[in-house]
Simulated assay, not measured.
Amino acid sequence: MNTIRCKVEKVTPFNDAVFQVLLKPEVSFDFQAGQYLSIVMGEKDKRPFSIASAPNADLIELHIGAAVSESYPMQVVERLKTDEFIDIEAPAGTAFLREASQRPRIMVAGGTGFSYIKSIIEQQIASGQTVKTQFYWGCRNEQAMYYQDIARQWHANNEWLEFIPVVEDAPADWNGKQANLLEQIKQDYVSLIGYDIYIAGRFDMVGAAREVFREMGVDEANLYGDAFAFIK
């Protein structure tokens, strides 16, 4: 893993709880779609975030959920707002896109787990892949689905990709599913045999998803999520 100095190009709120961060590395580095980096806050304080941009992008994009003042992620946002440069350690993670696989893909994101999926889908688009992919994005409400427009654009522009937005609290004119994310997947699939599954979100959601997916026959060798390295 390399330590790389980056210029902080932009810190912009998507909404009152999620920030978009754009970084320009002083030297280019190779990573695979779906990997993450760590913001170096101190010698022994390195905080991981999924890379939201695809490997071919000029800037490194992060999505940081930081709703609570002085919280672990908000401390990073405040640092990025005030410092012109920041050090990162990258790349890290083993839950990257398996581009050679032709198995159909299910992408699952809870909240800012979208950033992980964004890198993977944008890499699929950039490399001209057409493997059938269903992308589930679950949020509490529509306001929390901060990059809904780009996901719907992917859906409209790529026949192989289906975007399935899922919210628990939906307005009357909601164009998507109203349900718990995992309950929606259970409703849509009888079995998960034969799929590559990529998942990111809060650790408790990812852990619960693994239990649900086991009941549905998932081959865990084809279940990818870096959260699994941190949860039992």
Results as ranks from 00 to 15, higher is better:
8 V>T: 14
9 E>V: 14
14 F>C: 03
16 D>M: 05
16 D>H: 14
19 F>M: 14
21 V>I: 15
25 P>E: 08
25 P>I: 11
26 E>Y: 04
27 V>G: 01
46 K>N: 02
46 K>Q: 13
52 A>M: 13
55 P>C: 01
55 P>Q: 01
56 N>L: 01
60 I>S: 03
62 L>Y: 02
64 I>P: 00
72 Y>H: 08
72 Y>C: 04
72 Y>K: 10
73 P>E: 09
79 R>T: 08
85 F>G: 02
86 I>K: 07
92 A>L: 14
94 T>R: 10
95 A>I: 06
100 A>K: 03
101 S>H: 12
102 Q>V: 14
102 Q>G: 08
103 R>L: 06
110 G>S: 11
112 T>N: 07
118 K>R: 15
119 S>F: 02
121 I>G: 07
121 I>P: 05
128 G>R: 04
132 K>D: 09
133 T>D: 11
135 F>N: 11
137 W>H: 11
140 R>N: 14
144 A>T: 05
145 M>G: 02
146 Y>I: 09
147 Y>W: 06
152 R>Q: 12
153 Q>E: 14
153 Q>S: 13
154 W>L: 13
155 H>C: 09
162 E>Y: 03
162 E>L: 04
164 I>L: 03
167 V>Q: 01
167 V>I: 09
171 P>V: 04
171 P>I: 00
172 A>I: 03
173 D>A: 13
175 N>R: 01
179 A>R: 00
181 L>W: 05
188 D>H: 02
192 L>M: 11
194 G>R: 12
194 G>N: 14
198 Y>V: 11
201 G>Y: 11
201 G>M: 05
205 M>I: 15
206 V>H: 10
207 G>F: 05
208 A>C: 09
211 E>R: 11
215 E>P: 01
219 D>Y: 14
221 A>L: 06
221 A>M: 10
222 N>I: 04
222 N>F: 13
223 L>M: 12
224 Y>K: 13
229 A>W: 02
229 A>T: 12
